[in-house]
C-alpha cells in the first residue's frame, strides 16, 4: 500500500493497523525518516517537499510491488509527505511485515533505498542564506544500486 499526503502520520498506529488480524506475521519493521535541522554548516528553518502528483503514486506502487516480488512479505506500507516541513517533522514512513525478520528488514531497507532514487520528490531547504534545492547524493545512488537492476 502506498499513500502520498500533506498530513503527518502516526507510525505505531499505521504499523498496528497494517497487520491487524494477520497471524502469519511474526515481524514488523518500521522506518521513519525525519527532517534534519542542519545541512553542513547551515541551520535549516524549513524543508519543502515538491512532488509530481500521479507519477509519484505510480513510482511508489512499482517500488512496493518490486519489494513484494523479491521478499515474502505479508504486508507493506509507504507513506510519503509533501509540502512545508520543519526540522524534526516526519517525512516518510515505510512499514514491512513478514513471518520472519530477515525479509521485513531487507525489504524495508530496499524500499527506502529505491524510493530515494526513483520517486519524484524534490527537497527545497530554507536557511538563513535563502532557499536552495537539495542535490541528489551519490551515496543514495550507490545504496540503491546494491539491490541490483530494474
Amino acid at each position: 500500500m502506498i499513500r502520498v499526503q500533506r498530513e503527518d502520520f502516526d507510525a505505531a498506529a499505521e504499523a498496528k493497523a497494517l497487520v491487524a488480524g494477520n497471524h502469519r506475521v511474526g515481524s514488523v519493521v518500521t522506518f521513519v525518516g525525519l527532517v534534519r535541522g542542519a545541512a553542513g554548516e547551515a541551520t535549516i528553518g524549513a524543508m519543502t517537499l515538491e512532488h509530481y502528483p500521479g507519477m509519484t503514486e505510480r513510482e511508489l506502487a512499482k517500488i512496493d510491488a518490486e519489494a513484494r516480488a523479491r521478499w515474502p512479505l505479508e504486508a507493506s506500507l509507504i507513506v510519503h509527505r509533501y509540502g512545508r516541513l520543519k526540522p524534526g517533522d516526519q517525512i516518510v514512513l515505510v512499514v514491512t511485515a513478514s513471518a520472519h525478520r530477515q525479509a521485513a528488514f531487507a525489504a524495508n531497507e530496499f524500499l527506502v533505498d529505491w524510493l530515494k532514487t526513483k520517486a519524484p520528490f524534490w527537497k527545497l531547504e530554507s536557511t538563513a542564506q535563502g532557499e536552495q534545492w537539495v542535490d541528489a547524493r551519490a551515496a543514495d545512488d550507490y545504496a540503491a544500486k546494491r539491490w541490483g537492476p530494474k
Binding site: 525518516g33 517537499l49 507519477m55 517525512i91 530515494k116 532514487t117 519524484p120 520528490f121 524534490w122
Partner: peptide
Amino acid sequence: VAVNQEYATTNAPVGPNDEIALFPPVTGG
C-alpha cells in the same frame, strides 16, 4: 524525463498527446 509519468530515455518517442515532465535527480525520502 518522464513521458506520461514513466521514466524515459533520450531516444523515446514523443507525440502531441503526451505529457512530458522534466526534473532533476530526485531527492525524496
